[in-house]
């Protein structure tokens, strides 16, 4: 896989890039760090780190102007869910589309 893989510049293509849900387009955070496998000769990307969550490279769908992922079981929107439950949902109209 390493031989056929795309050559990426960690700083330019990965770090601080926006994470997006591949299906829904939901914004899921930024890439804070990367995990590399250095045993393979050429370093190979094994995972992305966002906050406290580790996103295995297998869940990455595309690396473009944003990084599209399939989050699966990962909980990347903990903060948003907390604010939603405790504050935003208590305000009338929180679930309505704007007019």
């Amino acid at each position: 896989m390493a031989a056929e893989g795309r050559v990426l510049h960690a700083q330019l293509h990965l770090l601080d890039r926006q994470l997006i849900h591949e299906r829904t387009g939901e914004l899921l955070g930024k890439v804070d760090d990367v995990e590399l496998d250095l045993d393979a000769g050429i370093p190979v990307l094994t995972a992305l780190i966002s906050g406290h969550e580790r996103i295995p490279a297998t869940q990455i769908v595309a690396i473009d102007s944003a990084i599209k992922i399939l989050p699966g079981d990962l909980d990347l929107t903990k903060g948003d869910d907390w604010v939603e439950q405790h504050i935003i949902d208590k305000i009338p109209g929180a679930g309505d589309a704007t007019e």
Partner: peptide, 9 residues
């Protein structure tokens, strides 16, 4: 909807 972007709001 606002609840989908709760931190933003």
């Amino acid at each position: 909807r606002p609840r989908q972007a709760s931190r933003f709001h």
